[in-house]
C-alpha cells in the first residue's frame, strides 16, 4: 500500500459515520478486506482515505425480526455457515457462503462487502436477489432501505452515497412452501471464482407456479435478475419442455456475458440455460 494512504479505524457505528462525513467517491470502506487488499496489491485501486470498519461490532450479528432475518453487514461467511437462524431462514445463503473462497477467506469475507464491492462474480448477491433482500444504509443524515436489486447499478457500482455505510441486510420471511436452489460453476471444485452462478426461489400451489425469482452472476456487468423465467412460467404448471423453453429464454434474453480470463460468453450462456433447466426441474418436478 502506498504510504500516502490515511486510515481511520472507528470502534463504534457513530464513529464510523463521523469518519465518513465529507467522504468522496475515492473514500474506501474496508471490511474483511478480501476484495480491497487484492485491489491494492494489484494496483487496480489506489488507496486514498480508507475507513476500516472491521472493529465496529454493532455491524455484526444475525437476528430474527418480524419482517425477516436481519444480517449485520460485517457478518462473515464463516458466521453465516455456523448460524442456525441463517440455516432456517436463508438456507441457500448458507450454501453460497460455503462455496466462497477458502476457509481463511470465509473468515474475513462479509455479506456487506460482497454486496458493496458489486463484483459481477459475487456469490452471495444472486441469493439476495432471489430472496428479495433489502439493504439498509446509514449515514449521519439518517437511514434508508432499498431492494438489493436497486442497490447494484453497474459494474462495481452501487447506489451507496459516499457518506453512507451498509448497516445490514434484511432477508424477508420465507413464503410458505417456497423452494430454493443455488448452483455455482467455478474454475475448480473449491476456492474458485464463479464462471456462472444462479439462485432461484419459487412458490407453487398444486403444481401451478405462483412466484419465481431467479438471479444470476458472472453473466452480465453486475448480478442480474432473470425476469423471463417468471414471465414465462408464472401461473402455469410447466412440464420439462416448458422449463427448458423458459431457461432458454432467460439465457438468450436476460443476460449479456463476456469472454474473459475464466470462461467464454458462449459457455456462460449455454451453461446458464442448462443449469437453470436442471435446477427448476429439481424444484418443480420433484426430481432428486
Amino acid at each position: 500500500m502506498s504510504p500516502a494512504a490515511t486510515v481511520s479505524s472507528p470502534r463504534t457505528l457513530a464513529g464510523a459515520l463521523d469518519a465518513l462525513v465529507g467522504a468522496t467517491e475515492a473514500t474506501l470502506i474496508l471490511a474483511g478486506g478480501t476484495d480491497l487488499m487484492v485491489e491494492f496489491q494489484t494496483g487496480r485501486t489506489r488507496p486514498g482515505h480508507v475507513v476500516d470498519v472491521w472493529r465496529v461490532d454493532e455491524l455484526r450479528g444475525i437476528r430474527a425480526e418480524p419482517a425477516g432475518l436481519r444480517i449485520g453487514a460485517l457478518t462473515t461467511c464463516t458466521e453465516l455457515r455456523a448460524s442456525a437462524l441463517a440455516q432456517e431462514h436463508a438456507d441457500i445463503l448458507v450454501i453460497a457462503a460455503d462455496e466462497v473462497g477458502a476457509e481463511q477467506i470465509q473468515a474475513r469475507a462479509t455479506i456487506g462487502g460482497n454486496l458493496g464491492t458489486a463484483s459481477p462474480a459475487a456469490d452471495l448477491t444472486p441469493v439476495l436477489f432471489a430472496l428479495e433482500a433489502e439493504v439498509r444504509l446509514v449515514s449521519k443524515a439518517g437511514a434508508r432501505s432499498l431492494p438489493v436489486t436497486e442497490f447494484l447499478t453497474g459494474y462495481r457500482k452501487t447506489a451507496r452515497r459516499p457518506e453512507e455505510l451498509i448497516e445490514s441486510i434484511l432477508v424477508p420471511t420465507r413464503a410458505p412452501g417456497e423452494r430454493r436452489g443455488f448452483r455455482k460453476v467455478g474454475t475448480r471444485r473449491a476456492q474458485s471464482i464463479s464462471k456462472v452462478v444462479v439462485a432461484v426461489a419459487v412458490t407453487a400451489l398444486d403444481g401451478v407456479i405462483r412466484t419465481l425469482r431467479a438471479s444470476a452472476g458472472s453473466v452480465a456487468e453486475r448480478t442480474i435478475l432473470l425476469p423471463s423465467l417468471e414471465r414465462e412460467l408464472a401461473g402455469k404448471a410447466p412440464d420439462a419442455a416448458a422449463l427448458d423453453r423458459a431457461a432458454r429464454r432467460a439465457a438468450t434474453a436476460d443476460c449479456a456475458p463476456i469472454d474473459d480470463v475464466r470462461s467464454t460468453a458462449r459457455y456462460r450462456r449455454e451453461v446458464l440455460r442448462r443449469i437453470l433447466r436442471t435446477l427448476l426441474a429439481e424444484l418443480l418436478l420433484d426430481e432428486t
Binding site: 487484492v38 475448480r188 473449491a190 476456492q191
Partner: peptide, 16 residues
C-alpha cells in the same frame, strides 16, 4: 499470459 495470478492460474485443489 492472461492467467498471471493464483486467482486465475488454476491448479487442482484437494477436492479436484
Amino acid at each position: 499470459f492472461l492467467q498471471d495470478r493464483m486467482a486465475t492460474c488454476i491448479i487442482p485443489g484437494t477436492l479436484d
